[in-house]
Design a protein around this nucleic acid. Sequence first.
DNA 1: TATGAATGAGCTTTCATTCAT
DNA 2: TATGAATGAAAGCTCATTCAT
Lengths: 188, 188, 188, 188
Amino acid sequence: MDKKQQIMDVAIELFAKRGYENTPISAICKHSNVSKGLAFHHFENKEGLLREVFLRMAQIIEEVGDNVDLVNEELSTKERFVSHLEKIFLSMTCAEHKLYYQFDFQVLCQPALRTLLKDLFDERYQLMLESFQSILNDIPSADSLVDSHMLIAELDGIALNYLFAEDEYPLTKIKQRFIKKHLLLLGL
Amino acid sequence: MDKKQQIMDVAIELFAKRGYENTPISAICKHSNVSKGLAFHHFENKEGLLREVFLRMAQIIEEVGDNVDLVNEELSTKERFVSHLEKIFLSMTCAEHKLYYQFDFQVLCQPALRTLLKDLFDERYQLMLESFQSILNDIPSADSLVDSHMLIAELDGIALNYLFAEDEYPLTKIKQRFIKKHLLLLGL
Amino acid sequence: MDKKQQIMDVAIELFAKRGYENTPISAICKHSNVSKGLAFHHFENKEGLLREVFLRMAQIIEEVGDNVDLVNEELSTKERFVSHLEKIFLSMTCAEHKLYYQFDFQVLCQPALRTLLKDLFDERYQLMLESFQSILNDIPSADSLVDSHMLIAELDGIALNYLFAEDEYPLTKIKQRFIKKHLLLLGL
Amino acid sequence: MDKKQQIMDVAIELFAKRGYENTPISAICKHSNVSKGLAFHHFENKEGLLREVFLRMAQIIEEVGDNVDLVNEELSTKERFVSHLEKIFLSMTCAEHKLYYQFDFQVLCQPALRTLLKDLFDERYQLMLESFQSILNDIPSADSLVDSHMLIAELDGIALNYLFAEDEYPLTKIKQRFIKKHLLLLGL
DNA sequence: TATGAATGAGCTTTCATTCAT
DNA sequence: TATGAATGAAAGCTCATTCAT
């Protein structure tokens, strides 16, 4: 019934599958059984739709980890580090998120779109950076800032390759080696 | 003088800076002082131009590492591994290649473009995989295949974050931690 | 008011006068005071417009004979045959139809267009064939099928020559000789 | 070796099969292994090529009947009339001419092309008219001029339907009924 | 005679956006 | 909130034609 929601749901799917530039608003309207007039009633323009869609997407993805307590005092630093990584790998694997992540990378790598959503990207990056740093700060052998940057980048790369690989990608094995490697580096 | 070359040079730049879909052929022609007719005389269509541009780009990038001998028998396995990584980081840093790499990621993450150049991507990935495996095979503690996938993915991620970061990105420090980490993992 | 109708009316006229291939959509739009966008809003593409225009044209032409009763039981076979022919000659002469008929022949003789509308042509031919056969079946000396084919062909030819002749064409005299000739053949 | 001839041969075939407007000069060049430059060296422009091609085509078609003597004094009027018709039907059936006739009708029915070659059409029509009249003049019951127009038109129509029919068209039977009918009309 | 690079006008089509209802 | 007719700018592409070689 909520047509605005319908439009956004369809938009996110089509944007992800066909690419933003290759998805005319008319296609979104057709798939969500809504008139073009209504679409422009709810969203200022195509860029506005993109922004709202992107925000909603980010929100959905984040909901996954929300119930996990990052500062659980009962856990050791090592346990918190590992569980943080596990959580990220878990979200990556979630079938329903695949489309979202693909779209995310698409926007990230397309100059025009990236510029448009720069503020949102920056904010999110800052949050991730801080959450890694808050863990690494407790580890003497870590270079908290650099290692956080590195972890984010590497996880990005693994997600990227996993998401766009067609045949089965050895994600589980990579995860294990990945974690092992960082525990070694951090001396945990 | 060689107008076809001019067109390709301009195309690669505009594609990278503005995005493929946001770069009309007319813009490419304007920047290379050439008529639209000529562009379609030399390239079957826009996709054909993209393909040729992509091939040329890949070739330019590869030329960097060509003079480095991968199977130098004088070098130890560790030295070969490290030098291979150094080479990749070097190419990444090369100012002239920045545009190319950005374009590369753009194509990779846009479903339509990715599909179009799938064969070229696959081929290149295979080559990278093999070159890593050929090194890791000599290291007992390595999981040659999985580690190669992982290395490629991580390097991708680092490149991605480096390329699109606006302010100074601690690439050098990341490189050091990155290499150190893998030497630990591989027990070198 | 009905812009779609306007477009079709102009299209049929320009198609007939200049030829389908020599009539850009822009010309149709200019003559009907309509934007190019609207033309493609109402018709899928130029071929779609052609199809709709052709259907409408065929319908207009057919309306002429509709009020004449073919199976009027009061008429003799001879009378029915003659009146059928008269009706066809009448439609041919109708000034308003001249353009339509010319367009019809144009489409018929251009391979690409003919192919596009093959189904419509076939259907119409079948109807004409049947209407002639239903009359000739009552005449013993007639070879119902062959004569029907022949009649259609001959009438086509006469229409063709009449329509494209510039100076006065002796259509009335030809009609008389034509009817007389067939009555002789059929022994009526 | 004679490239000009090659061009014309290919042109006539492509014009007939695809239509004049749908046959770019580039296609003709490709099929005849000739450069575009050369094509424009031999023919002033596309219309010039059309004209030469049309002339050559007409010439080829006419060669068929040339060896038949129309004013053979040994033959009766009836025999001359019938043999004239037979000749025309024969030429129509000739497989090699099918393409030519189709092209002929195409040009005839396309306003732009018809105008371009009007003089050639008129001349040819006049010749046909005279050849029929020269026979019919000897027949008292004939209306020499009107009947000639009618005969030409009917034969046109039969050719038209025969040429563009896909399945087998009962041409032979039609020919027989056609000749019989006219002999009746002329009282021969 | 022969080539093919180069041009420019024009074509079909797409699409974001507006607006009257 | 909801529709879809209507617009206009711009896109990709075609093609006859020219011209230096």
